[in-house]
Nucleic acid binder design. Structure first.
Lengths: 181, 181
DNA sequence: TAAAAATACTCCATAGGTATTTTAT
DNA sequence: ATAAAATACCTATGGAGTATTTTTA
């Protein structure tokens, strides 16, 4: 599997349109079309619900989309790392989705964080628990604080923000390749 | 870049020997040799310090090794996900490296964890802060509790285990593709 | 001399292109 | 008629193999 073909697939999922996806990848439509077929062959499953236009991703396609994004993020990180854009110490913007009930608790977490890494910005967004799940899936947020009991979270690593008080909502970091865990 | 070639490279880094790495990948030595060259060409940098035998990885090679493992872990996760081995709810074994000074504190973290996910085992290892860094890099442990001040940790996501008490050692989860953070 | 890696070469799969067809709107 | 995707076909890159050479221990 070529990493570049994963890119094709992710673009296709975003554009929902072979032609536009191909354009964004700077390849022709047949090339992208063929590459997606190859992906499906290699994984031996359907990724796209095809009519005579793009219709949707299959459930398996959604999974490939998720991990594909993960792999592409790693791949980008590698290039950032190699081009020395890392520089040690945390920088950038951490986007967190927080349910309304957890807003007061959020500052407890962020306070220590900003104290240690002043170059990192934290953006707090008030969001519903469903939006938080979606935001994590779409990489629109990097983490969140939400409920664990209502809808089980997918593809995330969860931990209690304050271990000895279990009645608080739990914090969730974006999903990871976490091996056996 | 073929994901399979990343596998070649990671195997080579582990075996420190082209022939044995090739064997583990079920390819011939020249094939692996050529693939590594191609990787170097594509990234436009040297990965291996070559004499007329394998000598070491270059610093860039170490970085590629790290992110390569990450990508392969994601790729494996994808396959696990597709073959329905996920099953929801955490299971497996979480291996944590803990400095001696943090051992008493570790139970605070693990207590809530095991209460919520009884099917997950937690293995606590008393380790030096250096061993913890190495263990994280080698994927021999999944996370740890260690010092942040002495030697800065590489490739990890850090957070304080108990936000309002900053004098405690910090917990570190294994590194992730964490976008802008 | 033996072992390790690179090199030379061959073969074939396939990535990517252009041109065209099919089908639904 | 138009737009979207698939198909057919072509070319060239390069992945993987075998055989061989080079170099060092």
């Amino acid at each position: 599997m070529l990493i570049r073909h994963l890119k094709f697939f992710v673009m296709l999922a975003e554009e929902q349109h072979f032609g536009r996806a191909a354009e964004r990848c700077n390849v022709t439509q047949p090339t992208l079309s063929h590459a997606i077929r190859k992906l499906e062959d290699e994984l031996n499953l359907g990724l796209i619900v095809r009519g005579h236009r793009f219709l949707a991703l299959t459930p398996e396609g959604e999974k490939v989309l998720h991990w594909g994004r993960q792999i592409l993020a790693d791949y980008d990180s590698l290039h950032d790392d190699l081009t020395g854009r890392d520089s040690g110490g945390l920088t950038g913007r951490l986007r967190l989705g927080i349910i309304l009930a957890a807003m007061p608790a959020a500052s407890i977490l962020t306070e220590a964080f900003v104290a240690r890494d002043p170059r990192a910005e934290i953006e707090l967004r008030s969001m519903s628990s469903r939006s938080i799940q979606k935001g994590l899936d779409n990489f629109e947020i990097d983490g969140g604080m939400t409920y664990l009991d209502n809808e089980p979270l997918q593809h995330v690593r969860c931990f209690p923000p304050y271990p000895s008080i279990t009645s608080l909502p739990a914090a969730a970091a974006t999903s990871l390749p976490d091996g056996p865990a």
